[in-house]
């Protein structure tokens, strides 16, 4: 009787694991199949070189570069905000803050990641953009800068939390060695602790980039829906994710070329984040052994 129970539970747990694997496989399959029919109508060459992305206009162009430019721009802005702030927080918490303070502040920071992204998007559109319009002339109502900055705030905990873990994991003996030779606290942090934690810091940054690339709500609300091959942060742009939202929520006919285009965009997005996550995973795994 007991054995049967064990058997059932074991199989049930296995099914749970299987569901996630099957879901991923299913997503990849659908993306590939639909993207395949898309690429029967649009050549890969056009897809990667056409400077315009206008599937919803009468004159259709399918150049993914325009969407990539939007994604790239908002992501770069986000990282430029999140990396210095996140690292600053990580260094402070790991090297300077009293232990009791660290215990309180770290979970609070992680709450930043728990704020619904639609709230962030609204915040970008209604608060940050008007603020930017006040100090920088020529900022559009929808723009990459505002969305990028707010997205940067959202991913701060990705960088600060994982980097703090990496810094904290640097053995005390290395810090003592540095102090023992007359290093100041700052020298110890920048010449010993950070280089020793570099693999963890790099991995956290890549994960944060990956998160920013995949972020949808903030950019859909605040960055606009104007795909264009531009790197001007003051103008509206459209990211890959925002385009997918636009088409999925619109009245595009199922099975049409416009409809298929979101799968082509989707598979590009998937490839991008998949590669970044794999690189992050690989870096962490490769360099983890160092201290053991």
């Amino acid at each position: 009787m007991l054995k049967i129970k064990e058997y059932i539970i074991e199989k049930a747990l296995f099914m749970c694991a299987l569901i996630t694997v099957l879901t991923t496989a299913g997503i990849i399959l659908i993306l590939t199949v639909e993207a395949f029919s898309f690429f029967r109508n649009v050549s890969l060459y056009d897809f990667f070189t056409d400077p315009q992305w206008t599937p919803l206009y009468s004159e259709k162009h399918f150049g993914i570069l325009s969407l990539l430019a939007g994604t790239f721009l908002t992501t770069v802005i986000a990282i430029m905000v999140a990396l210095p702030v996140g690292m600053g927080i990580a260094i402070y918490l790991s090297e300077y803050a009293p232990r009791s303070f660290r215990k309180i502040i770290k979970p609070l920071l992680e709450l930043l990641a728990a704020v619904p992204t639609v709230v962030y998007g609204f915040f970008a559109l209604m608060v940050v953009t008007p603020f930017l319009q006040n100090i920088i002339p020529g900022v559009s109502g929808f723009n990459a800068l505002s969305a990028g900055i707010v997205m940067g705030v959202m991913i701060i905990p990705f960088i600060s939390s994982m980097s703090e873990d990496a810094l904290h994991a640097v053995p005390k003996s290395l810090r003592e060695a540095a102090y023992g030779m007359g290093s100041t606290r700052l020298q110890t942090v920048f010449r010993v602790t950070i280089p020793s934690a570099s693999s963890g810091i790099t991995a956290s940054t890549i994960l944060a980039i990956s998160r920013a690339i995949g972020e949808t709500m903030i950019v859909t609300i605040a960055a606009g829906q104007m795909p264009g091959l531009t790197l001007n942060p003051l103008k509206p742009v459209q990211t890959i994710t925002a385009y997918i939202v636009q088409v999925s929520s619109g009245d595009v006919q199922f099975g049409s070329l416009e409809h298929q285009s979101i799968f082509a965009a989707g598979i590009s997005l998937f490839a991008l984040t998949f590669i970044l996550n794999s690189v992050s995973f690989w870096i962490k795994k490769k360099y983890r052994i160092q201290y053991e």
Binding site: E176, A177, Q290
Partner: peptide, 26 residues
């Protein structure tokens, strides 16, 4: 007053940079 510790604790840098460290920070 230099110190040598119980467990060898070289920095995860090259041999050269380990020895040069004390001078570089000066």
């Amino acid at each position: 007053v230099g110190m040598v510790f119980q467990k060898p604790n070289p920095f995860p840098k090259s041999i050269y940079e380990n020895v040069a460290y004390g001078l570089r920070i000066q």
